[in-house]
Design a protein around this nucleic acid. Sequence first.
DNA 1: TTGATTTATCTCTAATTTGAGATAATAGTA
DNA 2: TACTATTATCTCAAATTAGAGATAAATCAA
Lengths: 149, 149
Amino acid sequence: MTTIEWNQEQALALKLFVVMTRSLESVKRNVEHDIRSHGLNPTEFAVIELLYNKGDQPVQKIGEKVLIASSSITYVVDKLEKRGYTQRKPCPNDRRITFVSITEEGRSFMDEIFPSHVEAIESIMEGLDSEEKEQAIDLLKKLGKSTKL
Amino acid sequence: MTTIEWNQEQALALKLFVVMTRSLESVKRNVEHDIRSHGLNPTEFAVIELLYNKGDQPVQKIGEKVLIASSSITYVVDKLEKRGYTQRKPCPNDRRITFVSITEEGRSFMDEIFPSHVEAIESIMEGLDSEEKEQAIDLLKKLGKSTKL
DNA sequence: TTGATTTATCTCTAATTTGAGATAATAGTA
DNA sequence: TACTATTATCTCAAATTAGAGATAAATCAA
């Protein structure tokens, strides 16, 4: 055990960090539960959702948006491909680039599960009313924008 | 590409989820950067910080508080032990239990780095003033409490 | 006391993720 | 053109994490 005094602002910053972490852990646990009920893990879902909602993407773009390393994208896309949900398409202009594209099978899978996924998120966020959600969005956006890395 | 209409509340819930995720990603990236500068990964730091601030803990308690599986705790504690930062102590009353305890070496390491870690978090959270931090804390607490899992 | 159940930790395997190169293609410049 | 630097993806090894049992100890009820 250690007793060290922090100033007010440090205590507040630490508390915010802990609360953000715990709160998002809870939310993610609930969202993940919904996703796994559809037979995907969160990363697989994030990738296929990106392709479903934003169209074909080069491997690297996927990595940037889902925030995982390109070597992991290769792994995840391989798994989605084995299920028949995605396919790779070479870029005609730049042969270094491989697009990843959702298949018809992947699309109809998402057509089937995505609406209930959105409902699940709506329900998970029910603890805040509309105004509170907007406040939280504004505060978190402001915080996110202010960070260095 | 798909065009589906969501109602207002669903759109807000989705946006909040995305903003929470992104914002905490940014914050964590910055916090992690500080932690790694001290030669630890975030999980190792979480465990040693728990022992430093809350005293000896049974393996399972560590898992509950840091939210990782007990098998992973074994792995992390093994690594901290190899560095000389922690040691295991059998529980005298209940021989099923093993306490993990911070060593003198671990304590003086934390004495050295913890103040600058707190300053780093204060600096990372500077984007919000005190009042905004308190608002964010209240909203996120409320959201976290309302979740099922 | 015995037997069944629960609890705590650990072992082992599999899944996931990262990071360091390897490879191949493109772009820029002399 | 030839050389260098950059870019995009992939391969491979290592680190991390979770999950399924194994083991040992404690608890509870008959």
